[in-house]
Design a protein around this nucleic acid. Structure first.
Lengths: 355, 355
DNA sequence: CACGGCCGTCGAATCGATTCGATCGCGAGG
DNA sequence: CCTCGCGATCGAATCGATTCGACGGCCGTG
């Protein structure tokens, strides 16, 4: 009662295995009558087509791209920034009939699937610097790696597989945002930062942020603030880009004596939490405090307010990552991609209050 | 410059291929000295371990479970009901070192991956009745299928692989909810329904809803309302369980002349949209209209209101589906699971207004 | 009528690993 | 000193498909 194989079908149809193979793959010449005989035999045995495992071994390719999301799925999935990117990625892959193997990875650890699973290429979201364990394990296996927001870089000294980086102009984006706020007259800034790296700390203002940050996009966005010539009065790291963390960071910042007049959050979810915190404290946005975000996602619960934010092309980022994975898997090199961002002024920023 | 194989390593170490295999798998007796020699040789060739494709062909198992989500990822991912379930599923699978192959499927179509990808089992979310194309394709390939909320059933007349159903007590849940509202004194009901099936219609009240519904969970929840002896004055189908669809359905219902005093939404996201619509129309909840949901997810943007809702164990549902997939893949049968639900009264329901 | 080409079919090698049964060698016991 | 037994190693078959080269007819043309 084992499942039938191509050999069984060939025997049933009275042809050789190679001919039966041709009937299914269509590669190579075969008489229409023969093909029909083979297909009829297959139907009789309820043979549903060639076993993919055999094909994969023969071709050496699995048709699968691993996607390592650097966090619990529950958390990643709550962030539209992840999900919109994954949506673009999934579409790019499915257009090539490639499968998307979803690999959740708790901060810092290397899941067994990264070591064992068959993949033609991998996409790593938020690699923690060039020595990220996941990236190292993959390159050691000879699997090409596309890094989204990661700066993994080809180290010529190390033997390894091809890599590619897909990112956005985080740094320029925050610089433009801060310049906008400067032009409005703001001089005293608070910053609500994304996690600095896998070793997430919580809450405390920190001086070493920009240098310690293992997450390259956090580092770049912080650097963009410095580029505008601004030294924030307070910087709060959050453990994840979620509304509630933005809310508690907002409380911390806005309850200070003589709080800043502008709060720059490094993500929209964090920014929306800051807006909620301001409302709870009886502060008007933007009359009493300006709040800016980053990403450009929809925030229906802020309505009728619209967050001033730096918009990034999330779906494009995912799509390009998928295409890069395909290219690398085919052995072709991929140039680094830095997508442009777009400052969109909403209703949450304005001139600072008169003192 | 092709990647090294086990044979290369064996040659380098001066042992046979079979011995080299033992050095990696640990199955079978091998001298420690020999194993070290093999591992040293592997390191010299930078051989990162046995090629999974070879193992998979040999063992006949791919270590992959396909998960077919019946919608665009972008939409599924916006719904915490999907994502929390997926999180539970992913964890159950990763505990068994199984991979999760994510297969998005536009309504009604059968993606190529369903036909071609290697899987030991598959989980189908929201199968559209027992003749869902995806389910048929999978069983024809001999792949065991776990259906979440789908009622796919083993048809003894049809040759096919094993199946299992994982669901919740939708029907009893809505019945209890409606009884609660009846006890409060409500007599005139509006219903905001989930999509009835892949062929989503939009907005219009329909008489044939409960029978036409291809999505079993929609049908069951509507049936639960009937079980309580209630015939709603208006039923609105929505194209997806999203806040904005709940909002527009809420507008439709609450703008009627002499609107119902209670609106039963079949999901929390829809219900929260109804609450937003009521607020926009200047109606107080629950003084002017009561609103109930289903699922029990967090709705921070309704704060300080808490939605009255039927809570279901989402993560457990995913976890059980993962475990069922493992069992089926191992050839063991799985009994149907119907998880209990839990009515939680919040602040959005109360007695109807005096007329 | 004979020969060259071409279309269709077949056999066998190959992909990379696992595993069963056989063999080899060494040590211990009779 | 011979033999038995056991642990370590090896050879070969196997998983299921693809593909290359060879072969065998058939048809058309010279």
């Amino acid at each position: 009662m084992t499942r039938p194989t191509l050999a069984d079908v060939a025997a049933e149809a009275g042809v050789s295995v190679s001919t039966a193979s041709l009937a299914f793959s269509g590669a190579g010449p075969i008489a229409a009558a023969t093909r029909d005989r083979v297909l009829a035999a297959a139907a009789r045995l309820s043979y549903a087509g060639p076993n993919p495992l055999g094909q994969q071994l023969r071709s050496g390719r699995s048709g699968i791209v691993g996607v390592v999301v650097g966090d619990r799925l529950r958390r990643s999935f709550r962030d539209p920034v992840s999900t919109q990117m994954l949506d673009g990625l999934a579409h790019a892959l499915s257009e090539q009939s490639l499968g998307l193997l979803l690999i959740p990875s708790e901060a810092g650890e290397v899941p067994p699937l990264v070591q064992n699973a068959a993949m033609d290429a991998a996409v790593v979201v938020l690699a923690n610097g060039p020595d990220d364990g996941v990236v190292l394990a993959l390159t050691r296996r000879g699997i090409p790696v596309v890094s989204i927001e990661g700066e993994i870089g080809d180290d010529p000294g190390r033997p390894g597989a091809a890599t590619a980086n897909i990112g956005i102009d985080d740094r320029g984006g925050t610089t433009r945002m801060v310049r906008e706020l400067l032009a409005l007259g703001h001089r005293r800034f608070g910053v609500v930062a994304l996690p600095y790296g896998h070793d997430r700390r919580l809450g405390a203002p920190e001086a070493d942020g920009p240098t310690r940050a293992g997450y390259a996009h956090t580092r770049r966005r912080l650097a963009g603030i410095a580029d505008a010539g601004v030294v924030p009065e307070v910087v709060i790291e959050t453990p994840a880009s979620l509304v509630e963390h933005g809310r508690s960071a907002g409380h911390q910042i806005l309850r200070r004596a003589d709080p800043p007049t502008a709060v720059v959050a490094l993500s929209d979810l964090l920014a929306s939490g800051v807006v909620l915190a301001a409302r709870e404290l009886g502060l008007r946005v933007p009359e009493d405090v300006s709040v800016s975000g980053f990403d450009g996602i929809e925030l229906p619960w802020l309505a009728p307010d619209v967050l001033t934010s730096v918009h990034q092309p999330l779906a494009d980022k995912g799509r390009l990552a998928g295409e890069a994975a395909v290219e690398l898997a085919a052995g072709r090199p991929v140039a680094e991609v830095v997508l442009p961002v777009d400052l969109q002024v909403g209703t949450t920023t304005g001139p600072p209050p008169d003192r």
